[in-house]
């Protein structure tokens, strides 16, 4: 036992005064700020111009696109390419909408399943201390490191063995695991921030551990679940390598792979391809813009938290 006899001498330590707050200087905007604006302007052009050119091209006829020097703005703006892709009655549109639906269906299903599995796992990693917890968690994270192609061959053989080649099941199963490590990591961050006392209070109030989780913790972690879901959806929507390898019949293809067929089969219809690329980007960009806050959080959570 210690004897806390007050050591008065320690009290003489001078208290540091807080740094004086200063009003922001009114000096003319310095060179650094101009440099910052220059960088932003350059990056804005770098980022936006290719996308702008994609849209402009998609509004041209094929003939107008294949001109040199290019028409900077189409002489004749046409929406023909979009109409063709989106009308289910012609062959091209029918095929494209099929790809679109396939992508949507695969992405949404793998996202939902992913969340259902990730939520309890992340919760467990955040709350419980059980043997092997640490090792498990790092193995989860390490999945991030391995290239898709490395898993491609064994998974292809496995899917063949399971009879899942050329089914959407193979993609859903794969995308599920794709998203899991990050989802778990991300959700764990959210659960870490929910005070454990809330659950303890619930358990004392008569809830079982599961009820405490379901009634109290789950609703509080919904931002995390949304963030996770968006991330998983976008990843699945954009995935190419597995879809390229696992699927071969035309009616099963997802958009990224379908786009390629489109490209080769219709003899480089550039305006059509640009229109298809545009339509394909719409769902993810809209999702991203609407739920930007969550998406950014999904990206940065964990790495930045000190």
């Amino acid at each position: 036992m210690s004897t806390p006899i007050r050591n008065t001498a320690a009290m003489t330590a001078t208290t540091t005064s807080p740094a004086p707050t200063r009003r922001r200087s009114k000096k003319p905007i310095g060179g650094w700020r101009w440099a910052g604006r220059g960088i932003l302007a350059f990056l804005l052009l770098f980022t936006a111009l290719p996308m702008v050119w994609m849209v402009i091209t998609s509004l041209k006829t094929q003939l107008a696109a294949l001109q040199y020097p290019p028409q900077w703005w189409p002489n004749e703006v046409t929406f023909e390419n979009y109409v063709q892709l989106l009308s289910p009655n012609n062959a091209v549109g029918h095929e494209f909408l099929q790809y679109f639906w396939n992508s949507f269906y695969v992405s949404i299903l793998s996202t939902i399943l992913g969340v259902v599995i990730a939520v309890p796992a992340a919760y467990a990693f955040s709350r419980f201390r059980f043997p092997g917890r640490q090792a498990l968690f790092f193995s989860v994270l390490l999945r991030n490191m391995f290239p898709a192609v490395v898993f491609l061959m064994p998974l292809f053989l496995m899917m063949k063995w399971l009879g899942l080649v050329n089914t959407h099941g193979s993609l859903i199963l794969t995308y599920l695991t794709f998203g899991l490590p990050l989802s778990i990591w991300l959700l764990k961050g959210f659960y870490d921030n929910i005070p454990i006392q809330l659950e303890q209070a619930a358990r004392i109030d008569g809830a079982t551990r599961f009820q405490a989780f379901f009634h109290i913790v789950m609703p509080l972690s919904s931002p995390g679940i949304i963030a996770t879901a968006i991330y998983a959806f976008i990843m699945a929507w954009n995935e190419y390598v597995y879809a390229l390898t696992f699927l071969n019949s035309k009616d099963k293809l997802t958009l990224p792979v379908g786009l390629q067929r489109f490209f080769s089969e219709y003899a480089t219809n550039w305006p059509g391809l640009m229109a298809a690329s545009f339509i394909m980007s719409v769902p993810v960009v809209v999702l991203f813009l609407v739920l930007q806050k969550y998406f950014v959080r999904a990206l940065t959570e964990g790495a930045v938290k000190s």
Binding site: P256, S281, F288
Partner: peptide
């Protein structure tokens, strides 16, 4: 956020 496939085609163009 957009698909790398779409991006690749745009840049190829």
């Amino acid at each position: 956020v957009i698909s790398a496939v779409a991006a690749s085609y745009v840049w190829k163009w």
